[in-house]
Simulated scan of single mutants.
Amino acid sequence: MNVRDATDDDAESLVALASDDIDAERLIRDRTVRVAETDDGVAGFVAFDTWRGAVHVTRFDGESDVVGELLSEPRSFAAGESLPVEVVVPDGDEAFHEVLVDAGFEDEGEGPAFNGEETRRFRCRP
Rank of each mutant, 00 (worst) to 15 (best):
T50P: 10
F122L: 11
G80M: 13
V35E: 01
A78C: 05
R120M: 14
E25A: 13
S72Y: 08
E117I: 09
V99D: 06
P112R: 11
S76Q: 05
V101C: 07
D61N: 13
D21V: 14
T32Q: 07
V57P: 03
R123E: 14
E63N: 08
E25Q: 10
S13V: 09
A47D: 08
G53V: 06
F122Y: 14
R75T: 05
V99M: 05
L70Y: 02
V67R: 02
A78I: 00
V57W: 01
E98Y: 00
V89E: 01
G80H: 13
P90V: 10
D91Y: 15
D30W: 00
V67D: 03
F105Y: 15
S82L: 04
E106S: 15
V89K: 00
D30T: 07
R121M: 15
F114H: 10
G92P: 04
V33P: 00
A36L: 07
V46W: 02
F48H: 10
G109L: 06
V15A: 14
G104F: 05
F96T: 09
F114G: 07
V101D: 10
G41D: 14
R4G: 03
I22H: 01
V87Q: 04
V3L: 05
V57L: 03
A113C: 15
I22S: 01
P84D: 01
D93W: 12
F45A: 00
R121S: 15
G104H: 03
R29Q: 10
V33M: 01
T32E: 02
D49R: 15
F48C: 06
R59G: 00
G68M: 07
L14D: 12
E118A: 15
E12A: 15
N115T: 10
L71H: 12
T38P: 11
V66N: 02
P126A: 09
V42Q: 00
D5C: 05
D21M: 07
E117V: 08
D21I: 04
G92S: 09
V85R: 02
D9W: 00
R52N: 01
R59T: 06
D9Q: 11
H56W: 14
R59P: 01
T50F: 05
E25H: 14
E117W: 06
E117R: 09
R26W: 11
A47F: 08
E37A: 13
F105P: 13
T58N: 04
S72M: 11
L70E: 02
S64K: 08
T32N: 06
D107K: 14
E117N: 09
G62I: 03
A78P: 06
E106N: 15
G68Y: 07
F48T: 03
D102M: 04
A6N: 05
A11Q: 08
V42W: 01
D9H: 08
V15G: 11
A78E: 03
E12F: 08
A79C: 10
P126K: 09
G53Q: 10
R75N: 00
G92F: 06
T38Y: 11
D107R: 14
L71K: 14
P90I: 08
H97M: 08
V15K: 14
G104R: 07
S19V: 15
R125L: 04
P126C: 08
D8C: 12
V101S: 13
L100E: 11
G44P: 05
V66F: 04
L27A: 10
S72K: 14
A103Y: 07
V57H: 01
A103D: 07
W51M: 12
